[in-house]
Structures are given as C-alpha cells and as structure tokens.
C-alpha cells in the first residue's frame, strides 16, 4: 500500500492558463490558487470556460499554455496515485444504468484499495441518504438521487480534492436544498478541498467561502461572497421623505451623503433608506452582456464594479 502523500502548498495553483480552440481563445490567461481545505466556487455564465478550466485541472484535457499544479502535480502527467486523491462529479453522468446502487459503490471502492482505505458502500449510502435505494438499479433513480449517488462515487476514495461540475443543474428547489445540505456535510469531512462550478450566483454564495468569477476567458473577480458583495455595491440609492415628498439620490459614498443630509435637515428627514446595488445585480448585468455577445465589455464593466 502506498504512503499517502502529504499536501504541499495550495491544492490548486493556476498561472497564466491559456486554452485555444482553432483561432478562438477560450481562456486567455487565468490565474488563481485554491487553498487546501476550502470550498471555492468557479462562477460564470454558460460558455465562459468553466468546464474547460476544470477539465484541464482534472487532467482530462491538454492545455495550450500556462502553469497548472493540482495536488502538487501537473495534471498533464498525473499518475494513478495522483488520480486516486481526487474525486470528480460531472454534470450529467448516466453511466452503468443497469447496475444496482450498492454494487456500484462497492465496486468503485475496490479501485482505490491500493492507495487508500475507501469508504464502505453502506457508509456512503448513509452519508448521501440513499440507503433505501441500495438495491435499485441506477436508471430508476430520480435526478436528485442520481446526483447524490454521483457525489458518493466521487468521494468513495476519500479524496483530498473534489470537483463538482454544475452540481444542481435541472434540480427542483427541494432537491437543490437537499443537495446543498449534502455539500455542507462534505465540507465537514476533514481536509477535503472542494472546487465547484456553477452559473448560479445564489448557489455559489450559499456553498462557497470564496467565489472566482470567470468570464471572457479570465478571472474577473475573486473574493469571499461578502467581499464581492461589498465591492459590487459601489453605487447606492438613498431615499428619504422630506416635506411630505419622496427624495431619491444616487451616490458613490452613501455614508458621507447620509451624514451630511442628517446634519443639515433640522429633523425634517424621515424614512431614510439606503439600497446598495447587490452582487446579484452586478452579476446579472454581466450575464446579460455576456449573452448579448459583449464578452469583453461585460468582463471589463464587472471588473471595474468589483474593484
């Protein structure tokens, strides 16, 4: 049995990552690092290059340029020991449809035995809430159950790093909530680093400690959900009642404006409200511009807004 390698440095380090298909640059110099033990969301509109980025990190795709290190190795020449330390949950896995749930997990666990002590099928089923479905065929599972099984299969080898690609696409709100709870449970497993991709800001805010926004082939924002929200809220709308009339004023410095307003109003101002532009507003504007084909403009505007 191989000795587990100790984590050295960040779980993922990417610098100047480039990807070119034909004459189209999909990734034009992506830089980021992901620290061990964190939950990071790679957020971006559909077609922004998220899947390409993650596939390069997973070692599924050769890159055009740049430096990439995942769990201390270049994914382009990651061996089976390296492979054993990561788990991958893809968007739409419909594999092994005729297999039964427990058989599949028990079989997958076998692959990891030379490298680690994998979870047992029953422990995993309990963790993802599929104990009752243990004897069912995979193709009979609902969409949400299937994705939870995919997560179980992804963590069977106790991975140091788990990739979740668009994990809740096509879910109803109930399935989505259950899935989010599962991810929260996973983050309690010691030391598992999670990188998830999503195009849903609410999901990123809910699950991740840190959000990387990818658009126009580069990372245009990077920070905790709070930090991004604060950065996005550069302009605020101040509303108040004065002399029986509603007053509205847009400002970059709401605090200073309000201080001045209250200092000079002689008590006439009532119902003071300050609305900051939310991260959601900024992100939705980005997605809209992106979908209208204004990729570069979208990226630039957003980057300005969040700096």
């Amino acid at each position: 049995m191989a000795e587990p390698q100790l984590p050295v440095g960040p779980a993922i380090a990417v610098s100047d990552l480039r990807m070119r298909y034909g004459d189209k640059d999909v990734l034009g110099g992506v830089d980021f690092t992901v620290e061990t033990g964190s939950v990071t969301a790679l957020l971006g509109p559909n077609g922004a290059g998220k899947t390409t980025t993650v596939e390069i990190l997973e070692g599924f795709r050769a890159r055009s340029g740049g430096e990439v290190s995942v769990l201390g190795a270049d994914p382009a020449d990651g061996d089976e020991h390296w492979r054993a330390r990561m788990g991958i949950v893809l968007q739409e896995w419909r594999d092994n449809g005729k297999w039964r749930v427990r058989d599949l997990l028990a079989h997958f666990a076998d692959y990891y035995r030379p490298y680690t002590d994998p979870w047992s099928a029953d422990e995993l089923l309990d963790m993802v809430g599929l104990t009752e479905q243990a004897g069912q065929r995979l193709m009979r599972l609902s969409g949400g159950q299937r994705r939870r099984l995919d997560v179980a299969a992804g963590i069977v080898g106790r991975p140091a790093l788990l990739f979740l690609d668009e994990p809740t696409t096509g879910f109803d709100p109930h399935a989505r909530r259950e899935f989010h709870e599962l991810i929260h449970r996973l983050t309690d497993l010691e030391g598992t680093t999670i990188l998830l991709t999503t195009h849903d800001l609410a999901e990123a805010e809910k699950l991740a400690e840190r959000i990387l926004i990818l658009a126009g082939g580069r990372i245009i924002a990077d920070g905790s959900p709070d930090a991004l929200a604060r950065a996005a809220a550069t302009t605020a709308e101040v509303k108040w009642m004065q002399d029986g009339r509603l007053q509205v004023h847009a400002t970059d410095d709401a605090t200073a404006f309000a201080r001045k307003l209250l200092a000079t109003d002689d008590g006439a101002v009532t119902d003071l409200e300050i609305h900051r532009a939310s991260l959601e507003d900024a992100y939705l504007a980005l997605v809209e511009q992106f979908e209208a084909g204004e990729v570069q403009a979208a990226a630039d505007t957003f980057q300005e807004a969040t700096r």
């Binding site: 997973e58 020991h81 492979r83 991958i88 896995w93 692959y111 990891y112 030379p114 299969a153």
Partner: peptide, 8 residues
C-alpha cells in the same frame, strides 16, 4: 469517463 476518473 467514470472509469477514467478512477485510479486504474
């Protein structure tokens, strides 16, 4: 692809 994602 699943097979590819596991060691061996």
């Amino acid at each position: 692809l699943r097979a590819k994602s596991m060691p061996g």
